[in-house]
């Protein structure tokens, strides 16, 4: 797979849009999910995931071909998310959490047409709870936890993506895991 990616990257460097389309297809779910788990909102996640790919395309010249492309792409996306979180102004989206409620979004204010089966409701509730707990983590623990458990990356890759020493990454994952345990232990 890395070989195919390398070949595509060479074509992209010559300015080939179709080759880049293949790259986007390959990584779109991972990058979109990373942004969604970091930001907690679909609109922003889609926006930033697109931005990450566009930046990768525009700056492809600065990509070192000896490295793994996915690492570079994850780094761009993670940095964009962290930047966004830092200068986040209050935005109003349907799937943003309603103030003063526990995990309620504007979507839940809209009556749904079809009643969901009970098990599905339960699993959706659990997913929402887990997502909300991740979003409550400080951003430095959140990025490490998301890269580790949502994106299933190795500690070494995470240390490259976040540009941090391995020890620091471990500490962040330990703290993040501990914080999540405190919140999720009675679920």
């Amino acid at each position: 797979m890395e070989q195919i990616v390398k070949k595509r990257i060479k074509q992209v460097m010559k300015g080939d849009h179709d080759a880049f389309g293949d790259i986007v297809e390959l990584y779109k779910n991972s990058i979109f999910q990373l942004c969604f788990r970091m930001l907690g909102n679909r609109h922003e996640a889609e926006d930033l995931a697109q931005e990450a790919f566009i930046r990768a395309f525009v700056n492809i010249e600065s990509f070192n071909q000896d490295l793994k492309f996915s690492t570079w792409l994850y780094r761009i996306a993670t940095n964009l998310c962290i930047d966004r979180l830092r200068k986040k102004k209050p935005d109003y989206y349907l799937d943003a959490e309603v103030a003063g409620t526990e995990g309620l979004t504007m979507y839940s204010q809209i009556p749904s047409n079809t009643p969901l089966p009970e098990t599905e409701v339960e699993s959706l509730e659990l997913q929402e709870t887990v997502q909300n707990e991740i979003l409550k983590l400080p951003e430095k623990y959140r990025s490490a936890i998301v890269l580790k458990y949502i994106e299933d990356l190795s500690l070494n890759e995470i240390s490259e993506i976040l540009d941090l020493p391995l020890g620091t990454v471990k500490t962040r994952i330990h703290r993040g895991r501990e914080a999540l345990r405190q919140q999720l232990r009675y679920v």
Binding site: F20, K28, F32, V130, I145, Y149, I150, L184
Partner: peptide, 22 residues
Amino acid sequence: TVAFVQSISHMQAPADFTAQVL
């Protein structure tokens, strides 16, 4: 906790995502 976090890890990008980027 780890199992919970891993269980939510299957999200898909919107259908027209690639077209939008291109």
